[in-house]
Design a binder for these strands. Sequence first.
DNA 1: CTTTCTATATATAAAGG
DNA 2: TCCTTTATATATAGAAA
Lengths: 201, 201
Amino acid sequence: MVRQRIEIKKIVNVTARQVTFSKRRRGLFKKAKELSTLCDAEIALIVFSSTGRLFDFSSSSMGQVIERHNQQTENLIQLNQPSLELQLDNSASAIAIKEVEERTLELRRLRGEELHGLGLDELKKLEKTLEGGISRVLKTKSEMFEKEIAALKRKMGSDIGQTHEQGQSSDQSIITTTNNGSSAAAPPQDYDSSDTYLKLG
Amino acid sequence: MVRQRIEIKKIVNVTARQVTFSKRRRGLFKKAKELSTLCDAEIALIVFSSTGRLFDFSSSSMGQVIERHNQQTENLIQLNQPSLELQLDNSASAIAIKEVEERTLELRRLRGEELHGLGLDELKKLEKTLEGGISRVLKTKSEMFEKEIAALKRKMGSDIGQTHEQGQSSDQSIITTTNNGSSAAAPPQDYDSSDTYLKLG
DNA sequence: CTTTCTATATATAAAGG
DNA sequence: TCCTTTATATATAGAAA
């Protein structure tokens, strides 16, 4: 990257590799610290050199960040590592853990997080699932709005046409959000089969 | 660090913070990957944005690196209690099963299936998650297309001796147009009344 | 939140201690 | 492995889309 661009592949010369490791490791940790400070992010960074030496950094506590990571990704196994072997022998436990992992991966993918290994077909399938999900969520939401509106109308009818202030700020957002989600008036471009995603606006 | 040196302290302006986070996060992950490749280092990097989104990278497997880290730092203890194997297994099993249930429910909700008990806020949150997911899925998909196109152009160029100007990656069109025509992932629920929410528009 | 552009601040490859 | 120095490759602040 400097006097001569280096290719990003393993440096064969051992000495050069160590030197580069030293310098880049420092830079990396510096950047990590800056990011956590500047943007109020929670960061954990663990680095093992090729010689096995450990370097780490955590904006809060390493265990805390790792635990939070586990909660999101739920690689669960982490939590049980002391008795991992024993647990793997236990069929019920092993099965359950496997299930958790499967579902966790699927969840992450639905959140758009673990997409890199996927092929085109899988991405399309994901897309379709997401479109279906959002469609139903929007539908449910609008049903709630309709009920609310109906209830409000009943109330107004039973009153004498007076203005009331009981309306939460929610009803304003109701209208906005609903409009947003249901812009079916102007169909986008061409689609051959799917019509669901137009609801995304 | 550029037109004006910035102080390394929390950026108060929310928008500015997000932008900086986005850019620096990318830089950080890039550096981490380069270091692991160049120097054959084992790296785990976990970042939570201030809004709670997770980003992570691991040169091998996250669990593997974390476990190695734990071994070095001796963070973990437990399992000292002999004769508790059965209990551990049982509790692990119970925990895992509970996790499976939680994740299954979340999955179903993302698929738009188990929405009835939810309140407005939860629906909105779901919607946001789904939109984020689909956005990233589409982005990933279009990136694949772009790569493919670029590869094809290179090929054509070397075959015919033509020069091609790929220009900017202005393929927003791909994203919007790219809805598939294949892969039928049968959506679980009925669509017949799926236009209900349009009435509010 | 992501990305583009541009002007500059940083990081770092090389080489030598 | 760690510190220089120097010349150059990258990263990124700010503004805007």
